[in-house]
């Protein structure tokens, strides 16, 4: 039996749709493992998506756009870490504020720089890279011809695994999220490690935002992330804060997203919103049915204050 919307192109599209989610979720993994709840992924992605387009628009170079976008993401991540740790504010609320700031900032600058709301004109996008030989293989189109961030995202999975589980830095990061007092006694500067981890999460989520605006598309549209940051956060939780788990859950979300797009094309008389709803609905059902009791990093969400029991 043929399942509608299910073909090899849907699988190819799955990889493209997974990329921004995977990058953002791997970013969130850094900050949450260090003890900083990261609901700001959405705002970070949106900011990066916008500034990448601005960079590309003014220089005509997608590479410069990429750098500008990632720098903007790093700054937002730093802001989250700094405000959380330096002022000991509530991390969820700071995250919400950063998301609001991202909405306002991108909307305001879009209108101020480009003269009208809605979306920017098209700009230079990231090139598609074909891998020699692989491209000519059977099913080669599932491995070749993507924009560079697709490869980067999937290559980062083993690298982040090694980073988190096999390096001293990763061990320290995990200890910060589980028991910051112990880390502190061992002479680790909890505040600055966490700010650094949040900044790294900004870099990763920033790459995710750039993958949307300069990879999938070649422009910025208002609110274009439409909840992908939150989906990435959900994926991080289903994936149990582990790089491989995150890979599997973001692939699942990416697949549902690609599939619903294919279905929209096949059933044009059903309002498209019905299909757009599916990735979110599916992730809720997965949460309700298949998830056992969750155990996030013990110290996540709690700013570290020297000498205070948490």
């Amino acid at each position: 039996m043929m399942i509608p919307g299910l073909n090899m192109w849907t699988f190819r599209l799955t990889l493209v749709k997974t990329t921004p989610l995977l990058l953002a979720a791997l970013g969130g993994l850094h900050s949450e493992r260090s003890g900083i709840a990261n609901i700001a992924l959405e705002g970070i992605m949106l900011t990066s998506a916008f500034f990448a387009v601005v960079g590309s628009y003014f220089t005509g170079s997608a590479a410069v756009g990429l750098l500008v976008g990632v720098a903007a993401g790093a700054f937002m991540g730093f802001l989250l870490g700094f405000l959380s740790e330096h002022f000991k504010g509530d991390q969820i609320i700071i995250g919400v504020a950063i998301n609001l700031l991202a909405l306002g900032l991108t909307g305001y600058l879009l209108e101020t720089i480009f003269g009208h709301p809605g979306n920017t004109p098209p700009v230079a996008k990231l090139p598609e890279i074909t891998i020699p030989f692989v491209d000519n293989m059977r099913y080669g189109y599932l491995m070749s011809g993507f924009h560079p961030l697709v490869y980067v995202a999937f290559l980062l999975v083993p690298l982040v695994y090694i980073e988190i589980y096999k390096t001293p830095w990763g061990l320290r990061l995990r200890s910060l999220g589980e028991n910051p007092e112990v880390a502190d006694t061992l002479g680790i500067n909890v505040e600055w490690y966490r700010v650094l981890a949040a900044t790294i999460s900004g870099v990763f989520a920033g790459l995710g935002g750039v993958a949307l605006s300069l990879g999938e598309l070649s422009l910025f549209a208002e609110r274009m992330t439409s909840g992908r940051g939150y989906l990435a956060l959900a994926a991080l939780i289903f994936g149990k804060w582990h790089p491989v788990g995150v890979l599997l859950t973001t692939l699942f979300f990416g697949f549902v997203d690609a599939w619903q797009e294919a279905m929209q094309g096949e059933f044009i008389n059903i309002p498209s919103e019905f299909f757009t709803m599916l990735p979110y609905l599916f992730s809720l059902i997965v949460l309700a049915l298949f998830v056992k009791k969750m155990r996030p990093p013990a110290a996540v969400g709690k700013p570290y204050v020297k000498g205070r029991k948490i």
Binding site: L83, F87, K88, G89, I93, L100, G104, G107, Y108, E111
Partner: peptide
Amino acid sequence: EIVWIIQALIILFVAIN
């Protein structure tokens, strides 16, 4: 859109008390 920025800034100040 400037009002969104102002709101976010107020929230940031409230969040860090």
